[in-house]
Each structure stands twice: as structure tokens, then as C-alpha cells.
Design a binder for these strands. Structure first.
Length: 279
DNA sequence: ACTAACCGACGTGGTAATGG
DNA sequence: CCATTACCACGTCGGTTAGT
């Protein structure tokens, strides 16, 4: 499929045909066989006995904690991709990133999981400098970081089933098609920025695929923003401390104090004006 | 020698919409 | 995504006139 031509076709179609074009485009995406899946991976490091001065207790300890399993999200590609499959992969990944709670966790989670490796190197360093090392403390430190990692949950604001997600994406595609331009139109309006052209294997569709993919991510973020319950912020009058309703982000005073403040400032301004006029 | 009341210009931070 | 643009509801201020 050539997306650039499809956009061109879309622009000159009737309203009904436009809807149909996007519908068929979306159907092709949902028919794509491209999937992603959660996979297991391990952090591992090799414990070198000599580096630990052949200390039996340290060797046993680090061998006990020298690997950690975690999950990550993997898209799989079968053979050649085409624009439809590329977009499907992006759609899969966006869902995993924002709506799955078991992959793409906070960076801290992964750092904590591999803390024992850092401690291992730190210990080697300390041994080199002939510092004393406390095996029990080290084990405690490792256990604590692993437990802390387990307590980390993804900072997810809303839940969304795959089915609901599909309809969000379908709506987004209609929006995106409406504002999407062909490469030639873009070039006419804005000229051409050489940085955007990747010399090998570049085609017009590469640009449109990444545009559509980025836009989809943006639309999903909008969806999240609009469906996240807002935190209630309270504001207080800067003069009397009474709670005030937030009618504007600039509001500083309650109704009563506003009158007083206004008149106080008015006096000062008028005095200034009066002096400038009569000096 | 001021002050109150009114008007309108301009600035500003937050937020929503737009668009490639 | 991110840059741009528009909008809102305030805050702040100067100018002016009428009044005390």
C-alpha cells in the first residue's frame, strides 16, 4: 500500500468516501498479523572468584544474586514490513507503553533490579583498597533493593482495554487523515529539510508512517489527559486566607479583599498621578 | 489636597486547539 | 510529539471626572 497516494485520494474524495477510506485503512491495520508480546529477560553478570580475593562467602553471595529476571515488550517482525505493518507495530507498542502495567516500568525499577551488579563492582573496589567488607550488610542491601523494585508500580493514570483502545485509535485515524498532507504538499509549503531524508531505503511512506505513528501517540496522550480525573487544587486569598473559588489562574483575592486591595492600590496610583500632574 | 468611581489598555499564566 | 496560536479571566495601571 502507498500511503502518500491514499492521502491524495482521500483529499479529493467525498465525505462518505473519506470515512470509507479511513475505515478500510483501519481494517487493514487490525488485520495485520504483527503482534507484540511480553518476554522474559535477565540481567546477568559473571562472578570472578579472583576478583573477590577468593573469599568463599562473597562468592556464594554474589552467585546467589547475579541474575534477575524481568519482563520487556517485544514486537516481532515476520519478513518484510510494509507501511500498514509498521503502523500496527507502533500501535501495539503505544498500547504496551501506556496501558500495560507489566512492561516499560520506571527506569528506577530496572536500576534497582541490577543493583547487585553495582554492589559487586563496588565490593571488588573496596577489596582492592583493602577495606573491610561486611557480607551481611551487602546481602541486606541487595535484598532491600530487590524488594524496593517489587514495590514499584507503573505510574498509570487510567486503564484501557484493547477493545476500547482500538476505538480510540480508529477515531484518531480519522482526525489524522483530515490534517495529514502528502509529501509534495508539505514540500511546497515548507521547502525541504535535508535532515529528514535518510539516504538509504527512504521512501515517501517512511515519512508518513512516522508522522502517523507520532500523531497516534499524541492522540493517545490527549485521550489520557482528557480522561484522567483532575486533582483538586485549592486556592486561598492572599490577604485573609479564606478559600477562594478558582475562576482564573491569576485570582489572588477573595471578593471582599479584592475591593479593599483595589482601593488601596487605587489610592497609591492616584496619588502618583496627582503628583506628576501638579509638580 | 486629596479620593472614589469608571473606563479601557496592556500583561500574564494556564490551557485548549491546531497542524506538520 | 512539539511549536504555534488563540482564548480566558484575571492583575495592574494610567487617564479622567466628580466629589469631599
Amino acid at each position: 500500500m502507498n500511503i502518500n497516494n491514499l492521502i491524495k485520494q482521500y483529499q479529493s474524495a467525498s465525505e462518505e468516501d473519506k470515512r470509507n477510506i479511513v475505515y478500510l485503512f483501519a481494517s487493514a491495520i487490525w488485520k495485520s498479523e504483527y503482534r507484540g508480546e511480553r518476554k522474559k529477560k535477565t540481567f546477568k553478570y559473571k562472578v570472578i572468584n579472583e576478583a573477590l580475593n577468593n573469599k568463599e562467602d562473597l562468592i556464594v553471595l554474589f552467585n546467589k544474586y547475579n541474575y534477575q529476571e524481568y519482563y520487556y515488550w517485544k514486537s516481532f517482525y515476520k519478513g518484510e514490513t510494509d507501511p500498514i505493518n509498521d503502523i500496527r507495530i507502533k500501535i501495539n507498542n503505544i498500547y504496551a507503553y501506556y496501558f500495560r502495567d507489566d512492561v516499560y516500568l520506571d527506569k528506577l525499577y530496572y536500576e534497582l533490579l541490577r543493583a547487585s551488579q553495582n554492589i559487586y563492582y563496588r565490593t571488588i573496589d573496596e577489596l582492592k583498597k583493602n577495606k573491610g567488607v561486611d557480607v551481611k550488610n551487602i546481602e541486606q542491601e541487595i535484598i532491600q533493593s530487590i524488594e524496593q523494585a517489587k514495590r514499584i508500580h507503573k505510574d498509570q493514570t487510567i486503564e484501557l482495554s484493547w477493545k476500547e483502545y482500538k476505538s480510540v485509535i480508529n477515531d484518531a485515524l480519522h482526525k489524522i487523515f483530515r490534517r495529514c498532507k502528502t509529501v509534495a504538499q508539505y514540500e511546497n509549503e515548507h521547502g525541504w529539510d535535508n535532515d529528514r531524508v535518510r539516504v538509504d531505503s527512504w521512501s515517501q511512506d517512511n515519512l508518513l508512517v512516522s508522522y502517523i505513528g507520532d500523531s497516534l501517540r499524541g492522540e493517545v496522550l490527549h485521550y489520557i489527559r482528557d480522561n484522567t480525573p483532575k486533582e483538586e487544587i485549592k486556592k486561598y486569598c492572599e490577604r485573609c486566607g479564606e478559600e477562594i473559588s478558582i475562576t482564573s489562574n491569576r485570582r489572588k483575592w477573595c471578593n471582599e479583599c479584592k475591593i479593599i486591595i483595589d482601593s488601596e492600590q487605587r489610592k497609591i496610583r492616584n496619588k502618583r498621578y496627582y503628583k506628576s500632574k501638579n509638580s
